[in-house]
Nucleic acid binder design. Structure first.
Lengths: 202, 202
DNA sequence: TGCCTACCCTTACGCTGTAAGCCTTACGAT
DNA sequence: ATCGTAAGGCTTACAGCGTAAGGGTAGGCA
């Protein structure tokens, strides 16, 4: 096989991996298929990443790198934190396939530490004692993550699952008549507010 | 090989599957290993379940079947709902390996519909309009699920991951100095209350 | 010229889920 | 008593997986 004209780069590989995951789901990402999409053999990828897990870690880091908080920043700490968690949820909903990834390799990489520390710094402006801030942070992360997880209504289960995809009914879908979607952002914001005001002793 | 003295049963298979998942994680559950634990060959399992996915669905149903709400039932709807979601979280934390399963095959089976309808019925006692009840239910499920997911501090990633397990630091662990654990149930209950009171217009 | 390094390749191993088909035992009907 | 059928187990086989091991070839530098 004729080699590629330009050498592969880490970024190129991560881009292809995200595209593949977004298009076909996590299960569709195999080393052979990823390499195939790049016009290369599977083992070539091991020159750029030590393992598949390392690629997945890179994918998570890249997705987090896309997180943007809309300017201008609100002054008030609750509004600021709300924007940060909305951004968190939005990036997860935009890349539903990566949610399961994030689930079991949460911010393994160095540079994603910012996305942990930044919201904590904002919550600290509330003046609550440190322990309460930790609990509040926990609650907000858990809620945002869970919401994004359920909101990724495209089931990540393979299409040839034992059950036909058409028949799958999610709890909320069955209960409320529709799945959670990105249009639920207002409810998401509202609940964030309830949690924060609750902790702030409102 | 001499055949087993007693025929296999569906329940026996599910029990072995849950034991395997609890002990070694989801990744350790392969048809061959599960069959081996039962003293049987892999293909034998296909006499009792049409596919591996069907076994996983059965596992989820069984785990949900373990959900118990402590008696006596509280009268007040908020207290009642709180107990239900605490039970939900508790069962997930007790079987951390199944959380990822539940994630992508949420209540596929028929008999688990109860676990969807029952909390909704309780929330309906609040007298809120139907749409608000749906949103509240969404929020509570998302929070409970996310909390349980993060609380399963045993990372489901295989031990031979690219990163040593010892080095894995979860956001909350790094931030607060410890991981979420089952001892966080008080905070869990508190946040459930904040969400419910927020929706109830408290 | 010779060597080193970067980059890509091929081959191979043990694992996965499961399709296909064979063998034995148990049982109900003729 | 004999047969048909079904249940429940087995073996074999296939395509796909992650990756260990090692070979080749091109460009840069001594």
């Amino acid at each position: 096989m004729t080699p590629r004209e330009t050498p592969l780069t880490r970024e190129e590989i991560l881009g292809a991996a995200i595209a593949l995951i977004d298009a076909k789901g996590t299960d569709a990402l195999s080393m052979r298929k990823l390499a195939g999409a790049l016009g290369v053999e599977a083992m070539t990828l091991y020159h750029h990443f030590p393992s598949k897990d390392a690629i997945l870690d890179g994918v998570v880091a890249r997705v987090f790198g896309e997180m943007r908080i809309p300017e201008p920043f609100p002054e008030e700490w609750m509004a600021m934190a709300e924007e940060m968690f909305v951004a968190f949820r939005r990036v997860l909903v935009e890349h539903p396939g990566t949610i399961g990834l994030l689930a079991r390799r949460p911010l393994n990489t160095e540079d994603s530490a910012d996305f942990v520390e930044a919201p904590l710094a904002v919550l600290a402006r509330s003046g609550l004692p440190a322990e309460r801030i930790g609990q509040l942070y926990q609650s907000l992360v858990a809620y945002s993550f869970g919401h994004a997880f359920i909101a990724s209504d495209r089931p990540i289960a393979p299409a040839d699952s034992a059950l036909r995809t058409d028949e799958v009914r999610y709890p909320t879908a069955r209960a409320t008549g529709r799945a959670i979607s990105s249009f639920d952002e207002p409810t998401f914001r509202e609940t964030l507010g309830h949690i924060m005001r609750g902790f702030a002793g409102g």
